[in-house]
């Protein structure tokens, strides 16, 4: 039976391939990589390199010795997983923990399901959440950013993330205004240190505690614009995700600005930008139709805010995306993409 009728030439050749898309994503991540090196120096280089090498090694080894199938190491997907994993961890993470994370990302989250295109969850996020639950101490000690060209002697090596600090102090009964204006007194190694949540400009630029890739909203947005122009990602998920976060936190903020901080703070802190543009838009683990993608983004946004405001963890982006990943097949069932050539019912 001839399923595919190929008509005569000329044909238009679509030049998209896995490889091209993957290296496009890598290219889009370069600004964020540079910013992370700028703020965390050699530590960032070390974590990035180890993560990438470990991910690519595990991909190669599993394909060669366990699956004994074709090697797809060159398609760049393991490279992306490696960079994203490094983006999701603090810069002072011990080497062996990074390697465990890479093994979980590639071995458990990707290869167990059959490799690229078959993984129901975003591999890098599975790795991160695995590490977060397994090594909570190491995964929640964040090195303080220290700009490369304006190095100064820091009074403390590690400091909290803005979201973490906010959540802890809110739990201690302080109001948002008090925390933002007066900062938090901490005693590190017997010395009293004042931690002040950075202002919005600093947060946009990336001068705050956090994981390697999430700190700079500006760098991530530059990469995102490039990917949108190249049509590597679509606009539906980011718009729905960001929109629902803004609306949800906005409503809470209007109800009581003393205990709920404003939407802008939620946008520029934590891993939101990284999650929205680089992980919620992963082609494999998200719905196919544009309506489905809107629902996916909406769900991610709502869950993120719920976890950030009421959950046990200060940050909820990775959990939100993983939870919605699990819903992707269901969403796909409900909102099938339009078949090519189908006539519109008017």
């Amino acid at each position: 039976m001839n399923l595919l009728t190929v008509s005569g030439s000329p044909h238009i050749h679509g030049d998209n391939s896995i490889k091209k898309i993957m290296y496009g994503v890598v290219f889009a991540m370069i600004p964020a990589i540079l910013i992370s090196i700028y703020f965390f120096g050699l530590d960032a280089v070390k974590v990035l390199l180890i993560s990438v090498i470990a991910c690519m090694f595990f991909e190669w080894a599993i394909q060669k010795f366990l699956i004994k199938g074709p090697l797809t190491i060159n398609d760049g997907s393991a490279l992306i997983t490696g960079i994203l994993l490094a983006f999701n961890v603090p810069g002072n993470l011990p080497v062996w923990i990074i390697i465990i994370g890479a093994f979980v990302s590639i071995g458990i989250a990707k290869m167990s399901f059959g490799g690229l295109g078959k993984n129901p969850f975003n591999p890098a996020l599975v790795g991160r959440v695995f590490l977060l639950i397994s090594f909570p101490v190491q995964m929640t000690s964040w090195p303080k950013p220290n700009p490369l060209f304006a190095r100064k002697v820091l009074d403390a090596i590690t400091g909290p993330t803005p979201l973490g600090n906010l959540k802890e102090e809110l739990k201690g009964g302080r109001t948002v205004q008090d925390i933002l204006e007066h900062g938090t007194k901490m005693i590190v190694d017997g010395k009293e240190v004042l931690y002040q949540i950075p202002d919005y400009a600093q947060e946009l630029l990336g001068n705050m505690g956090g994981s390697l890739g999430e700190i700079s909203a500006v760098a991530l947005i530059i990469g995102a614009i490039y990917m949108l122009c190249r049509k590597i990602i679509t606009w539906q998920i980011p718009v729905a995700y960001l929109g629902s976060v803004i609306v949800f936190t906005g409503i809470l903020w209007l109800i009581n600005p003393n205990i709920y901080i404003n939407p802008l703070f939620h946008l520029v802190t934590g891993g939101l930008m990284l999650g929205v543009f680089f992980m919620a838009t992963d082609m494999v683990s998200t719905p196919m139709s544009s309506k489905g993608q809107l629902i996916f983004g909406l769900g991610c946004g709502v869950i993120t805010v719920i976890i950030r405001v009421w959950g046990a963890y200060p940050e909820g982006v990775s959990f939100a995306i993983l939870i919605m990943n699990a819903f992707a097949p269901l969403i796909n069932k409900g909102f099938k993409p339009k078949r090519f050539g189908e006539t519109l019912k008017i």
């Binding site: 909570p136 101490v137 000690s141 802890e168 201690g172 007194k185 901490m186 005693i187 017997g190």
Partner: peptide, 19 residues
């Protein structure tokens, strides 16, 4: 906890529980 000006060494990364 020391962070709040006391004498207790808090559990690493678990200030709330220590408090």
């Amino acid at each position: 906890v020391k962070k709040d000006g006391g004498d207790v060494d808090a559990i690493t990364a678990a200030t709330i529980s220590s408090r």
